[in-house]
């Protein structure tokens, strides 16, 4: 269910690496917890993000959830489709529902994240 080649954070963000560019979204588990997403608020292009810095919020009807940057770097793109169709986060959280792209500053941040196996184990721990 979770893509094999992504990295995962304890706050349920995923990041997919393509050279020095990372694409960031939230996991299927996270979208399930949040319920129907109605709005996504993200930083402007060019914003510099630290590791685990709050980068914006995702809103459902009755909840607001912070999204934290799984790596440090500079925001280069925001998924404009989410403005019109925030439900993409619910429907396709791991691909079309991506949130931002970031130019990674420090690749060593990735070592602080989990592999898919580790993340699945992490979720088992939560669900118990």
């Amino acid at each position: 269910m979770f893509p094999k080649d992504y990295y995962y954070s304890k706050d349920h963000e995923w990041i997919k690496i393509d050279g020095d560019i990372g694409t960031i979204g939230i996991t299927d588990f996270a979208q399930n917890q949040l319920g129907d997403v109605v709005y996504v608020e993200m930083p402007d292009k060019g914003t510099q993000l630290e590791f685990h810095q709050s980068i914006g919020v995702i809103e459902s009807v009755k909840a607001v959830s912070d999204v934290y940057s799984p790596v440090s770097g500079e925001v280069i793109e925001f998924n404009e489709k989410l403005n019109e169709s925030p439900e993409l986060i619910n429907q396709k959280p791991h691909d079309e529902g991506w949130i931002i792209r970031i130019k990674i500053k420090d690749e060593s941040d990735l070592q602080k994240l989990m592999s898919v196996d580790e993340y699945e184990k992490f979720l088992e721990g939560i669900e118990e």
Binding site: V38, Y39, E59, P86, E87
Partner: peptide, 11 residues
Amino acid sequence: VRRLDETKAAR
């Protein structure tokens, strides 16, 4: 009215 679609209202 019956249960209302609050997601639609917010989106």
